[in-house]
C-alpha cells in the first residue's frame, strides 16, 4: 500500500514528439484513479511510465516516498493487468499466478497460500490446473487479475483490462473490479477510453487530452462542472450539447462565451421555451427516449421520458443553473 505521486511528468519520444506533458497527480493510499481520454491522448503512455515499461523524459514518479524513475518494473512493487491479459500460454493458471512470486524467491508454502487465497477471491479455483487456452475471455481476465493480487503490491495498474470482453461481461467485471478494490484497498491506476467505465469505477477521474490533464476530480464534480469544453463533450452519455454562443444569443451569459453547453437531461419542454428544436430523429431506450434535432444550425440531443408527447418542433427551456459557458479561445470553463 502506498501513495503515488506524478510530479511534472512528461514524455518526449526520440524525434521530438511530445506524448505527455506537465502531468501532476497525487494519488492517495488506497485511492482508485481512472485515466480517461480519447485514443492517442497519452493515457497508456502515462501508465506505462508509472509501471516502468516506458522511460521518463521529464519529472518524477514517486511510489510511497521513493522516486522510482530509474527503478526496474519488477522492483517498483506494482502489478499490472494488460488489455490482452498477457498470460503465459504454456503455464497452467496456477503457474501463471505463482510465476512472479517464484521469481522473488517467495517460500513455497507462502506461494500456495496466496495463490489459493486469490483463486478463492476470484472464484477461479477449479481452473487452477488448466492452461489459459482452455479459458473464456472473462476467466482469463480473472486470472490476469489474480496474477496481480497474489503479488500483494503497493499499487495495481490496469491498462484497459475490459476492452477485449463483450458488453455484458464488461459491465459485470467492472463491478467486480470495483468491489475487489474496495475490499483490498490497494491503490489503483486504471486506464480506459470508455467514459462510462471511468465514471463508475473512479474515486477520482483524470481526463486527458493531447497529452495534458484537462481535469482531475470525482466523477460527479467532473460531470457537473466540466473544466473545459473538451471534458464537457467527453464525459456523459449522451454527450453534452455544445452550441455556438452566437447561435443562442438569448441564453444568459452567451454574449461573452464561445460555447454554451447544456446536458440533454437539463432541457424541459415548455410552451414558450426560447430554444426551438427541429426534431430529426428519435431513439427509444425504453426508460427514456433520445430526441435528436437542430436549432439555429446547431445539432442538439435531449432526453425525454418515454411517455412524453412528441412533435416535429419542440420548444425547450434550460433548467436554471444548468448552462455551462466555455471560453472562445481556450475552451476553458468561464465561471
Amino acid at each position: 500500500m502506498a501513495s503515488i505521486t506524478l510530479d511534472n511528468l512528461g514524455k518526449i519520444y526520440a524525434g521530438g514528439t511530445r506524448a505527455v506533458g506537465d502531468v501532476n497527480i497525487d494519488i492517495a493510499d488506497g485511492e482508485f484513479i481512472v485515466l480517461v481520454g480519447p485514443s492517442g491522448c497519452g493515457k497508456s503512455t502515462l501508465l506505462r511510465m508509472v509501471a516502468g515499461l516506458e522511460s521518463i523524459s521529464e519529472g518524477e514518479v514517486r511510489i510511497g516516498d521513493r522516486v522510482v524513475n530509474e527503478v526496474e518494473p519488477a522492483d517498483r512493487d506494482i502489478a499490472m493487468v494488460f488489455q490482452n491479459y498477457a498470460l503465459y500460454p504454456h503455464m497452467s493458471v496456477r503457474e501463471n499466478l505463482a510465476y512472479g512470486l517464484k521469481n522473488r524467491r517467495t517460500p513455497k508454502a507462502e506461494i500456495d497460500r496466496r495463490v489459493d487465497e486469490a483463486a478463492e477471491i476470484l472464484q477461479i479455483g477449479k481452473f487452477l490446473d488448466r492452461k489459459p487456452k482452455a479459458l473464456s475471455g472473462g476467466q482469463r481476465q480473472r486470472v490476469a487479475m489474480g496474477r496481480a493480487i497474489v503479488r500483494e503490491p503497493a499499487a495495481f495498474l490496469f491498462d484497459e483490462p475490459l476492452s477485449n470482453l463483450d458488453a455484458k461481461l464488461r459491465v459485470a467485471m467492472r463491478l467486480e473490479i470495483k468491489e475487489l478494490q474496495k475490499r483490498l484497498r490497494t491503490t489503483s491506476l486504471y486506464v480506459t477510453h470508455d467514459q462510462l467505465e471511468a465514471m463508475t469505477l473512479a474515486d477520482r477521474l483524470v481526463v486527458l487530452n493531447g497529452g495534458r490533464v484537462e481535469q482531475i476530480g470525482t466523477p460527479l464534480e467532473v460531470y457537473r462542472r466540466p473544466a473545459s469544453a473538451f471534458v464537457a463533450g467527453f464525459i456523459g452519455s449522451p454527450a453534452m450539447n455544445l452550441l455556438d454562443a452566437g447561435a443562442v444569443p438569448f441564453l444568459p451569459g452567451s454574449a461573452h462565451a464561445g460555447q454554451v453547453g447544456i446536458r440533454p437531461e437539463d432541457l424541459d419542454v415548455t410552451a414558450d421555451g426560447p430554444i426551438e428544436l427541429q426534431v430529426t430523429a428519435v431513439e427509444e431506450l425504453g426508460a427514456q427516449r433520445l430526441v435528436h434535432g437542430h436549432t439555429a444550425g446547431e445539432r442538439m440531443t435531449i432526453t425525454l421520458p418515454s411517455d412524453a408527447a412528441l412533435s416535429d418542433v419542440l420548444r425547450l427551456t434550460p433548467r436554471p443553473g444548468a448552462l455551462h459557458l466555455f471560453d472562445r479561445q481556450t475552451g476553458a470553463r468561464m465561471d
Binding site: A74, F82, A86, N103, R147
Partner: peptide, 13 residues
C-alpha cells in the same frame, strides 16, 4: 506479443 515480455519484466524475470 510485447505484453508477454512486459508481464514477465513486471513479474521479475
Amino acid at each position: 506479443p510485447d505484453e508477454l515480455t512486459e508481464a514477465a519484466r513486471i513479474d521479475g524475470a
